[in-house]
């Protein structure tokens, strides 16, 4: 009985020290995450139940912002455009793979070609937006002149509600393809040459080689490419803002831009409504994020 207290306290202290250390290291990161991510999320939800112009007092209105969203045409336009973004933006993944396969060879000067293909990802989204705006510009834009030359009448892509979202997505795809390409290029470096060799001896060629031998080994790269593309599509904001400001008459809005417009832009004084849009966008994103985290967790446990 007397011996026990002599042995245990140091051990317990050591164990406590061991269990405390990781938390100490985590603390700064967790504090930042709480202050800049977690607390703002709850604040946004809180604000979304209020009528607030960002200046005066907040007025509790319950779910009125959400019921207004339900009847708001502009919200559905934004939602539809977000779905379009999501679907078409994912084209960046196969297209990036295509270019990566094409560039994955040892030819003289291949590094120059690789850097040239990677270039659009390096330049800022704002610049990408400007370049494409000029490309589409009525009167002098390359595409406009081309269409005029072929069909006789030019189409001002960014001023036509039918084409405007596709025009902006095309601009977004340009850097996104480059990003997926670079992910696949690094992935291709890790493809085991002996397996390729073995497959070749077994007579695998072309599509079958790609589908059964190369692609399975590229799964980690594909996963990352899909994740960044989905997230990128959902938070698309800069291109919409630069190229059209959501126009013409709001037909190229996406949820993130609509939120900005309602809460923060020149004419936007509706913090509560903006917050409600943000909460909906967050909920949509959570569906995907949960899926990704679930998959990662499963992979880590080796299931």
């Amino acid at each position: 009985m007397t011996a026990l207290p002599d042995i245990h306290p140091p051990k317990a202290r050591a164990r406590r020290r061991n269990s405390l250390t990781p938390w100490l290291f985590l603390a700064p990161g967790m504090l930042m995450f709480a202050v800049y991510v977690l607390i703002p999320i709850f604040q946004s939800v809180w604000v979304s139940f209020h009528d607030w112009d960002g200046l005066g007092p907040m007025r509790w209105i319950g779910l009125a912002n959400y019921s207004e969203l339900w009847w708001d045409d502009a919200f559905y336009t934004s939602l539809k455009n977000n779905v379009l973004w999501l679907a078409l933006y994912l084209l960046a993944v196969p297209l990036g793979l295509l270019i990566a396969l094409f560039l994955n060879q040892t030819v003289k000067g291949i590094r120059i070609y690789k850097s040239l293909f990677f270039f659009p990802f390096v330049i800022s989204q704002v610049v990408v937006g400007l370049i494409f705006s000029w490309f589409y510009a009525p009167g002098f834009g390359l595409l406009y002149v081309l269409i005029e030359w072929v069909t006789g009448t030019g189409v001002a892509i960014l001023a036509d509600e039918r084409y405007v979202t596709y025009g902006i997505i095309a601009a977004g795809l340009w850097p996104q393809i480059a990003y997926c390409m670079i992910l696949y290029l690094t992935g291709l470096n890790a493809v085991a040459p002996d397996q390729i060799e073995a497959a070749r001896l077994d007579g695998a060629k072309g599509w079958r080689m790609l589908w059964h031998v190369v692609l399975p080994q590229l799964r980690p790269a594909t996963f990352i490419a899909v994740v960044v593309t989905v997230i990128g599509a959902l938070r698309s904001f800069d291109l919409v803002s630069i190229m059209t400001s959501g126009g013409p008459f709001g037909s190229s809005r996406v949820l993130s831009y609509y939120m900005y417009e309602q809460a923060l832009s020149e004419y936007g004084y509706r913090m509560g409504y903006g917050a409600a849009i943000a909460v909906v966008l967050f909920a949509i994103m959570m569906i995907f994020i949960t899926g990704f985290i679930w998959k990662m967790w499963r992979d880590e446990r080796g299931l």
């Binding site: 126009g247 013409p248 008459f249 709001g250 417009e261 832009s265 020149e266 004419y267 936007g268 004084y269 509706r270």
Partner: peptide
């Protein structure tokens, strides 16, 4: 502000 934004969009 809100009417201005909605109005001008409507005009367009």
């Amino acid at each position: 502000p809100e009417m201005a934004k909605a109005g001008m969009e409507g005009f367009q």
